[in-house]
Design a protein around this nucleic acid. Structure first.
Length: 647
RNA sequence: GCCGGCGUAGCUCAGGGGCAGAGCAGCUGAUUCGUAAUCAGCUGGCCGGAGGUUCGAUUCCUCCCGCCGGCUCCA
């Protein structure tokens, strides 16, 4: 590289199949692969040299272990999409020479590139760019890696009129900078890349969106082009199909189609109306939640929706949470505030009388409805709202009870999440940030208590150093849905701050006052959000125990109406949510509508069933379960409901 | 909040300075039917809101509201 002559030397290379060979210095992985043949080198995007991903045509200068990188690996996808984003940039520069380049990384399932351009991209531009990209791919332009000095690079990009690149360079400490050249296009990049644009198979540009430079809203708004790429058209197609599937599962669409909830302009943004059908499922969730909390030795409390502003001053929320709170309202010359959290209320209950160590731990749970101001641009169906009900609880305990309490909360949440059909998680442990309250020894104790609880349960987790809240360390759990999307639900947070601020105490064995530790925890997070996730997870086809309507009775003609009413009544008396469709319509239509409404079981009644005192039963999947006595059906359904089956 | 896109019937969507449209849904009637759509008729609209341009605005312009995709944060 750079024309320097490399001293001739023998290199010991360990090939991907573990055989060892010697080569001359300066040989590239590409040449070696071509020589040994074997696996088709066309699939090889890059190689790992001694564990480091590098370009396939980078000369080797020392003994190395070589591994292959293909699209099948995570690194391979990243290199592939990253290269595609550079091709996108090349194309945009060609079509829009005054566009300035920002950054263009690979992301999950694709890539993006940020541009600064006077006018905004249109849908038509996107199509034009996509066509241009295909041309670049067809002309198979190589990615050429170059190393230049930092000063040189800054000069280069300054001359090219790329201020964002210059800014990036100014933040880089290294003296040697890598750039990649494709034709006459040159971009700052660490690499590696695929050897040439021809490696890219199928590309689709997906959307255009605004994005601030470096995510900072005080900096310029750039235009972000999102896209994805795959080696094969069929893989791209199945990815696009997956996007369709996600769209079909969108809880906002299903919420309307299944008449579960709505958000009305007349009420206000981010405020949810639960329709009767959604309310049924919510009630089931709440009842289950309450039962399990009683079983886990929690007590249920209730608190008002508003409180004096002073309370929020004392709690500290006015200092660090104000921009998320609704504006106060003046009542009889006193300012009141809609609550964004439940904790201060539970603390005031705690303070209502002197507490003895014998009472601890105290576990108070509340389905508490809170209101938080969210910026209009972030609201999203049920997943991001301004009024929501948390499945909240606060545990007051002594330091030596902390670990048992965290363990208890973990067990409870895993049981509850599993019951709803979520058994895959991403777990995060967030530790002490730079700004914190409480003593170092308490932080250490609490953090190791959280850690031990996770380890004891063999729960894999990721540590986020310094990501804890200022008042204590926490565990966050994201659940994975059917489509493997992760959703943040559970949070278990230790709090050293509020007990201090409200000066809450308990009387110890020694007769002296001591400070309890507080744990905040929400398991489902919020009922609204959790319901939204449930809808998408099940694509609206809830398991029997959660279905708003569990069975629908479909008489074939008017002559079966009386018998059908009787059957409906019997099901209802057995506690099964049943409705009767006795409209004068063909049974085919009734089945179609019941199927679209995702009602788990359809009971069809014709003359034969009346005569034999039976019912014909069919699942929403189309599966025909045949003819059965109503007693048997009730038994089947009740056991399925009782077991809370999720399949 | 910011950037971009979009607001026409309950839903999905045409239309484009001069009478407001379709399919589905809804209503009425007929049909009494066996496992995913029976037929016919009818109803339904401040074309998101306010202002402006114009003889005339749902259409063009401005502002506002809302929704959608992102940016930051988070349940």
């Amino acid at each position: 590289m750079n024309g320097e002559s490399i001293p001739a030397k023998e290199l010991n290379i360990t090939l991907p199949d573990q055989t060892k060979k010697t080569y001359r210095t300066g040989i590239t992985a590409c040449e070696i692969l071509r020589e040994i043949g074997g696996k088709s080198p066309g699939n090889i995007l890059a190689v790992k040299v001694n564990g480091m991903p590098v370009d396939i045509n980078r000369p080797l200068t020392e003994d190395a272990v070589i591994e292959l990188i293909t699209f099948l690996t995570r690194e391979g996808k990243e290199i592939y999409r990253h290269s595609t984003s550079h091709i996108l940039a090349l194309c945009v520069k060609k079509l829009f020479p005054d566009a300035r380049l920002a950054i263009g990384p690979a992301i999950e399932d694709g890539f993006y590139y940020d541009f600064d351009l006077k006018r905004s991209f249109t849908q038509e531009d996107l199509e034009k760019i996509e066509a241009g990209i295909m041309e670049i791919i067809d002309s198979d332009i190589p990615f050429v890696r170059k190393e230049i000095r930092r000063e040189e690079a800054i000069e280069l990009f300054r001359k090219l009129g790329e201020p964002y690149k210059v800014e990036i360079l100014e933040d880089i400490a290294d003296e040697t900078i890598t750039v990649y050249q494709q034709g006459d296009f040159i971009d700052l990049c660490l690499g590696p890349h695929v050897p040439s644009s021809g490696k890219i198979g199928a590309v689709k540009l997906l959307s255009i969106a605004g994005a601030y430079w470096k995510g900072d809203e005080k900096r310029p708004m750039l235009q972000r082009v999102y896209g994805t790429s795959f080696p094969d058209k069929s893989e791209l197609d199945s990815y696009l199909k997956r996007l369709e599937e996600i769209k079909k599962r969108d809880h906002r669409r299903l919420g309307r189609e299944l008449d579960l909830f709505s958000i009305s302009d007349d009420i206000g943004p981010g405020l949810v109306l639960w329709h009767p059908k959604g309310a049924v499922t919510r009630r089931i969730i709440e009842d289950f939640w309450k039962d399990e909390h009683y079983r886990a030795d929690y007590e249920i409390v209730y608190s008002p929706h508003v409180a004096k502003l002073d309370l929020w001053g004392r709690s500290g929320h006015l200092d660090f949470y104000r921009e998320n709170m609704y504006a106060p309202m003046k009542i009889d010359e006193v300012e009141f505030e809609l609550k964004p959290m439940n904790c201060p209320f539970h603390i005031v209950i705690y303070k209502s009388h002197i507490r003895s160590y014998k009472e601890l731990p105290i576990r108070w749970a509340e389905l508490g409805t809170v209101y938080r101001y969210e910026r209009s641009g972030v609201l999203h169906g049920l997943l991001r709202v301004r009024g929501f009900t948390q499945d909240d609880a606060h545990i007051f305990c002594m330091p030596d009870q902390l670990e048992a309490e965290i363990s208890g909360a973990l067990d409870l949440t895993l049981f509850i999440l599993k019951t709803f059909g979520f058994d895959k998680y991403e777990i995060y442990l967030s530790t002490r940030p730079e700004k914190y309250v409480g003593t170092l020894s308490n932080w250490e104790k609490a953090t190791s208590a959280l850690e031990r609880s996770l380890k004891e349960r063999n729960l894999p987790y990721q540590t986020d150093p310094g990501e804890g809240v200022f008042y204590g360390p926490k565990i966050d759990i994201k659940i994975k849905d059917v489509l493997q999307r992760a959703w943040q639900c559970t949070t278990i947070q230790v709090d050293f701050n509020l007990p201090e601020r409200f000066d809450i105490t308990f009387v110890g064995e020694d007769g002296k006052e001591h400070r309890p530790i507080m744990i905040h925890r929400a398991l489902m997070g919020s009922l609204e959000r959790f319901f939204g996730i449930l809808i998408e997870h099940y694509a609206g086809a809830f398991p029997l125990w959660l279905s708003p309507v569990q069975t629908i009775i479909l008489p074939i003609t008017d002559r079966e109406r009386e018998y059908s009413k009787e059957i409906t009544e019997r099901l209802r008396r057995a506690g099964i949510r049943s409705s009767l469709d006795d409209r004068n319509e063909k049974v085919g239509l009734k089945i179609r509508e019941a199927t679209l409404n995702k009602i788990p079981y359809m009971l069809i009644i014709g003359a034969r069933e009346v005569k034999d005192n039976t019912v014909s039963i069919r699942k929403r999947s189309g599966e025909d379960l045949g003819v059965k006595k109503i007693e048997e059906i009730i038994d089947i359904l009740k056991s399925e409901i009782g077991a809370r089956l999720t399949t």
